[in-house]
Computed example of a mutant assay.
Amino acid sequence: MLLAIPFGLAIGIAVGMLGGGGSVLAVPVLVYVLGQSVSEATTASLVVVTAGAVAGGLGHARAGRVCWRHAGSFTMAAVPGLVAGTLAADSVSGTALLGAFALIMLAAAAATWRKADGEEPADGRWEGGGACPPLRLPRDLVAGVMVGFLTGFFGVGGGFLIVPTLAIALAFTMRTAVGTSLAVITATSLIGLAVHLLAGRSLEVGVTTAMTGACVVGALAGAGLATHVPQRTLGRAFALLVCCVAAYLLVSAAFLGGPPAS
């Protein structure tokens, strides 16, 4: 149980600072390091990620870095896409899913790195003077459906897909992309957790509690750090983290028999 604490802190910092990385990091740690079953790990990771997203998201919300209208429309569109993607994934092998997802993550990392090199506003906010870009509902809904489908199809990586989509397709700054991503992750993780619990999934209370508490502390620290880190650095750090997880997924497919299945 004590081993869960440093991993929880690291996951929380990633979630609070970069707006993603929770489930993709938590599930492998719970399975390969802490010895949980896949069923326990996927359910526990939803608890950990939800708590971390709430803690990190509060800091970003107080700083005005959450675009609530975008988050609401994105989440509404993502839910049916997630269901459709989950159903579609049943017809594809786990190894094929893993390889395809790793390639998508690498493409997202490259695009995010290029975005981070672009010119940013001096105050870190949207150029029009507000915290958010204008709401273009059709674009938000299409992006939400696509991200929801990919998240359901691959079973991991909501934040890794949401942040690049907001930053690139919807023209968010990195800070508002991170903050808004946490709002979306909170909603979708709560929905996923409810589904798992209603399906009778179990979790190990001690390990889950320890990792969740540490994740909350880490997420609060990460959200605070994000305020003082240049957007270019945030973007590059996100891209590097995505590359590392993609490399892990490829190694898992090649040598570990595939990913932990949700």
Rank of each mutant, 00 (worst) to 15 (best):
R201V: 03
G213N: 08
A167R: 01
K115I: 09
H196T: 03
A194P: 04
T176H: 02
T42S: 14
A41C: 11
G99W: 11
A210W: 15
C244M: 11
L150D: 00
A167C: 06
L2G: 07
F7C: 13
P133R: 06
A177E: 03
G52W: 04
L18K: 01
A61V: 01
I13Q: 04
P28K: 10
G20E: 02
A221H: 13
L30V: 08
M105V: 11
L98H: 01
Q36G: 07
Q36P: 05
G8K: 09
V229Q: 06
V33D: 00
A10P: 00
S262H: 11
S37D: 12
T212H: 10
H228L: 14
L137A: 15
A51G: 11
V54R: 08
V145W: 07
E119D: 12
P121N: 06
L46N: 13
V15S: 07
P164N: 09
S39W: 06
V142H: 01
P260H: 04
A247W: 00
A44M: 13
W126A: 14
G81H: 08
G22L: 11
F101T: 10
D90W: 05
L190C: 13
A44H: 07
P164A: 06
G129Y: 07
F149P: 09
W68N: 09
A55P: 01
M211W: 08
R201W: 09
L193P: 07
A102F: 10
I168P: 02
I104M: 12
G16M: 12
L150K: 05
G22H: 07
Y248M: 08
G12F: 12
A63M: 12
G257Q: 01
T180M: 01
A253I: 03
A194S: 15
A221N: 11
E40S: 14
A122G: 13
A169K: 12
W126S: 14
R62P: 06
C67V: 01
G235T: 15
V251I: 13
G124V: 08
T176R: 00
R232L: 11
E204V: 09
I5R: 10
V38Q: 14
I185Q: 02
L3N: 04
L166C: 01
P133Q: 11
D123F: 05
A55M: 14
G8A: 13
R125P: 00
G22I: 06
A253M: 06
S91M: 00
V251E: 14
G192C: 10
A71M: 07
A109I: 06
R236E: 09
L2Y: 14
V54K: 04
W113Y: 12
A109T: 03
L3C: 07
T212L: 12
L182C: 02
V66N: 05
V178F: 02
H70K: 10
V33I: 14
R201Q: 13
L225Y: 09
T180L: 01
G35Y: 04
L46T: 11
A89H: 07
T151Q: 04
G64V: 02
G206A: 15
